[in-house]
Design a binder for these strands. Structure first.
Lengths: 316, 316
DNA sequence: ACATCAATTGTGAAATTGCACATAATATAG
DNA sequence: CTATATTATGTGCAATTTCACAATTGATGT
């Protein structure tokens, strides 16, 4: 952690370098420090986030696709990002920014948000700008998962978002997937977990990602919560995707293999009761997952890009 | 103006350079462009504001001084910045950031702000982050002045702030100081000016700076609106500072030399009627001006730094 | 007091960037 | 169609930045 004086120095050096565009030599001379020292302070300022780079992506939207999507699935709102020339990596960052702008519009003091896990959710949360609204609290909607990228887990996202919005983080201290439905029941009945789930149910806004059950990349399989065979079975039985760890079919029915009962978190019915459920998803490979997710009736606002939405609309 | 594709490219290059920390050569290779081209795109991205540098100054506040100040002058809120080691230039930037954070908290959709002129106001406005609230409109509270730095004029500030907040800018198309009180009356009676002043009176928040009547730097003298002798006379008669072009004494009484009547803009009484008047001032040389300003009873929220506030509290 | 380790600071050379100038491409007027 | 201006692109070199490594400082235990 930085002391006040360290923080102040880092900020000053960063201002001189990035805002005033002085050279490191000039800054060193002005402050009576060596040039290398300035280099190191700048490096530290970047690492500590004292200086942040904000990129204004062009966030044009596709009004016709948005309307078509709203009508096709009875959505309250659709946000469809116009494609950019940039590669997928940036498409997600841009989508996150678009989602964040929308989310920010909804924020007001003393609000309660609930978040799940995943890359898309991560991007939205990272694009949210702190500031205006006050004491926006965040509840973890689902248990934790030891992911390949730990910063994508729901607990990490809850912490990040609550920190940005100056609110309290409520953690759901449980694994995302219990060994059996009965075990999950036991977990859910614990005082602390029950309390947090109750808070999550009362949230004003839920932020969810949509996963497709790709056997290659599934974190459920990778983490040993499901065998490849079990996943294949679920897919044969019609499972096409998941939201908040809850698997559903192309028709938007909850999967009945028993997996969903092993998940500690809001189920689809509870999620549907949340005032505003905002889902974020990107990629044509998620077409069926997105269609199924939309048909569950859980989603109020979908945030996606033109290619994905086109695929979704054409698949019916 | 940038096209969508240009903007997208600038954003992508900026992301690769500043976020991913790739070299210009690596970016050039990845995008099939020359290195100089990347250099120029980066330059353009900075100029166009596609990439912005945000510095997180340490914004600790002095709670005791704040409380003392609130009590001494019956303020609704006081924001007192803890001093940093950096020079005055950055002190103002930091103060601006502190003021901006407070201002942002107050924003809500369809709000109406009104702004005056000056360096402090400029810094606050430049630190405001766009985003959350929508259609926040901005009215110019006082006429324009040909300042040494044109970007500090009330019209420029009105434009900048309205642009950031996605609202409409209402310009007061008049000089700040008319040649006589009668002339000012004529200006104020013009349809367009009357309309804008009426809007300004109804603003939810007014942002004002506090000027001291320093004969060396006074923009009134420099611009020829007052002779050095007239200013000296006003000072002998007790004038210690101005807000929104309105001069007041150490006791907080409006100056009665006739200058105030020549100003086209909200007067002190009208300003006092605005719901929240936020004043920003920095520098011990402004001590008497700040004391007088506080005693006018116009100010609801004062934003300043520890050294200035200490001087103010000790001067009584 | 001295050895040992960690953290900080400085040196110099390689990598990267900035920019003046040259050149090519494109637009505009006659 | 040519002449001319305007704009965009590339080259080469100087300035700047980065970073590995060396030197120094400082803390800690013996």
């Amino acid at each position: 952690m930085l002391t006040y004086e360290e923080h102040d120095l880092l900020a000053q050096v960063a201002a001189m370098y990035y805002e005033q565009e002085l050279t490191q030599n000039a800054i060193a001379a002005a402050l009576g420090l060596s040039r290398v020292k300035i280099y190191r302070l700048l490096k530290q300022a970047r690492e500590e986030g004292v200086i942040r780079f904000t990129i204004a992506w062009p966030l044009q939207r596709e009004a016709e696709l948005e309307q078509a999507l709203r009508r096709a699935f009875g959505l309250r709102e659709a946000l469809v990002l116009r494609p950019g020339g940039s590669d997928v990596r940036y498409a997600l960052a841009r989508l996150g920014q678009l989602g964040a702008r929308y989310l920010e519009q909804m924020l007001h003091d003393e609000m309660m948000l609930t978040v799940c896990l995943g890359r898309s959710t991560y991007e939205v949360i990272h694009a949210v700008q702190p500031g205006f609204a006050d004491r926006v609290n965040v509840v973890q909607a689902v248990g934790s998962l030891a992911l390949t990228s730990p910063e994508l887990d729901s607990a990490a996202l809850t912490r990040t978002l609550a920190g940005k919005l100056g609110g309290v983080a409520h953690y759901l201290v449980a694994p995302l997937v219990a060994d059996s439905g009965a075990d999950a029941e036991v977990l859910r009945s614990q005082r602390d977990i029950r309390r947090v789930l109750e808070l999550a149910r009362q949230a004003d806004v839920a932020l969810v990602g949509i996963g497709n059950l790709d056997p290659e990349t599934s974190e459920f399989v990778r983490g040993g919560y499901l065998t490849a065979d079990e996943l294949a079975g679920i897919r044969r039985a019609g499972g096409v995707g998941d939201m908040a760890g809850q698997i559903f079919t192309l028709n938007g029915q909850a999967d009945n293999s028993g997996f969903n009962r092993r998940v500690v978190g809001l189920n689809l019915t509870e999620l549907a009761d949340v005032d505003t459920v905002m889902a974020v998803a990107l990629g044509q490979e998620k077409r069926d997952a997105v269609v199924g997710a939309l048909r569950t009736g859980v989603i109020d606002v979908l945030c996606s890009d033109a290619a994905t939405v086109q695929a979704v609309l054409e698949s019916r």
